[in-house]
C-alpha cells in the first residue's frame, strides 16, 4: 500500500487540486475588496486575541528581564561609582586634614619665627617630638640637640611666654623640663609692683611664686614676668598671671599661685634661647634730677 494512502485517505490528485485552490484563494485575497479583508479580519480576530495573550506574556517577561538586567547593570555601576566616590571622599578628607594640620603647624612656626625676628634674643626653633617618658617629671622632648648648639640650662619659650628649661641634651634631641615641674625654678617679678620672687612648679602641676614680700600689694590678675636675674631667661618674658595670693599668719612671705600663660599640654613648637644680651644697668633711664636749691 502506498504511504500517502496510509497517512491521508485523500488521493494525490485531490491533494494537488486542494493545493492549487489554496494558492488561488491566497492570491484572490490580495485582490479582494477592502470590505472582504475586514470581514476576514473579523473572522480571524478571536484567533488573534488568543494569540495575543502568550505574545503579551512573552513580551512582558522579556521586558521585565531587560528591565531587571538594565537596573542590575546600572546599579552595579552605581555601586562601583559609589565605592569610588567614597574612597575619593576619604582620600580628600585625609588630604584636607593633612593640609589643615600642616597649615596649623606652619602658622605656629610663622608666629614663632615672627617673634624670633623681632626679639633681641638669639633663639633656635624646635619641634616637640615626645612627652613624659617618665611619669615623675613633666617634660617634653624637642628635635634639636647638641649638634644644633643646645646646651643644658638653656631657657625654652614660645611667643606667648616661658615654657621651661633644657635639662638633658642628646646629639639630635633634648629634654626640656616644664615650668610646672617642681624641679624647675626661675626668678620672677610682679610686673606692676616690681616685687621679685621664685617661680616654681609643684607636684600637683600648678605653679607657685614663692618669697613674695609680705607687704607687697600683689593682687589676683597681676602679670608675672621673668626678672632676668638668672642666666637662662632675659628680663620681661611673660610667665602668667597671679591667680590667688595666700599668707598664713606664721608665714614670713606671701605665696602666689600662677595661672601660666603657656598651655603646656598643647605645645607643638618652641624656641630655645641660645644667647641674649642682659640689660646693662646703664641702659635704664635715669630719674629726673631736680635742680638743687
Amino acid at each position: 500500500m502506498p504511504r500517502s494512502e496510509t497517512n491521508f485517505p485523500i488521493s494525490t490528485s485531490i491533494r494537488r487540486v486542494l493545493g492549487v485552490i489554496f494558492i488561488l484563494f491566497l492570491a484572490l485575497l490580495l485582490f479582494l475588496p477592502r470590505q472582504s479583508q475586514e470581514w476576514l479580519s473579523h473572522v480571524g480576530g478571536p484567533f488573534a486575541r488568543i494569540l495575543e495573550v502568550p505574545l503579551h506574556v512573552v513580551a512582558s517577561i522579556q521586558d521585565s528581564i531587560r528591565h531587571a538586567w538594565d537596573h542590575y547593570i546600572a546599579l552595579q555601576n552605581v555601586w562601583e561609582e559609589n565605592q569610588q566616590l567614597k574612597q575619593e571622599v576619604q582620600r580628600l578628607q585625609g588630604e584636607q586634614n593633612f593640609l589643615r594640620e600642616h597649615a596649623i603647624i606652619a602658622m605656629q612656626f610663622q608666629q614663632l619665627l615672627a617673634y624670633q625676628e623681632t626679639t633681641p634674643m638669639t633663639t633656635l626653633p624646635a619641634r616637640i617630638i615626645g612627652r613624659n617618658v617618665s611619669n615623675w617629671y613633666r617634660a617634653i622632648i624637642i628635635n634639636k640637640g647638641n649638634q644644633d648648639g643646645i646646651h643644658p640650662e638653656m631657657g625654652v619659650i614660645t611667643d606667648a611666654g616661658v615654657v621651661g628649661r633644657v635639662v638633658r641634651v642628646n646629639p639630635t634631641t633634648a629634654v626640656v623640663l616644664l615650668l610646672s615641674d617642681p624641679n624647675v625654678a626661675i626668678t620672677g617679678m610682679i610686673q606692676k609692683s616690681r616685687d621679685e620672687g621664685l617661680v616654681q612648679g609643684t607636684p600637683q602641676g600648678t605653679i607657685h611664686m614663692k618669697y613674695l614680700p609680705p607687704l607687697s600689694p600683689v593682687q589676683a590678675g597681676d602679670p608675672v614676668v621673668t626678672s632676668g636675674l638668672t642666666d637662662d631667661f632675659p628680663r620681661g618674658l611673660q610667665i602668667g598671671r597671679i591667680q590667688q595670693v595666700t599668707k598664713a599668719d606664721t608665714d614670713l612671705f606671701q605665696l602666689g599661685e600662677i595661672d601660666p600663660i603657656v598651655e603646656f599640654s598643647k605645645l607643638e613648637a618652641v624656641l630655645v634661647i641660645t644667647s641674649f644680651q642682659p640689660d646693662p644697668p646703664s641702659s635704664l633711664p635715669k630719674p629726673p634730677v631736680s635742680p638743687s636749691p
Binding site: S134, W136, Y137, A139, I141, V167, R168, N170, V175, D181
Partner: peptide
C-alpha cells in the same frame, strides 16, 4: 633607654 630621654639622672630607671 628611658633614662636617655628622661630629665632625671641616668641609672635610676
Amino acid at each position: 633607654f628611658q633614662d636617655l630621654f628622661s630629665p632625671g639622672g641616668i641609672g635610676l630607671n
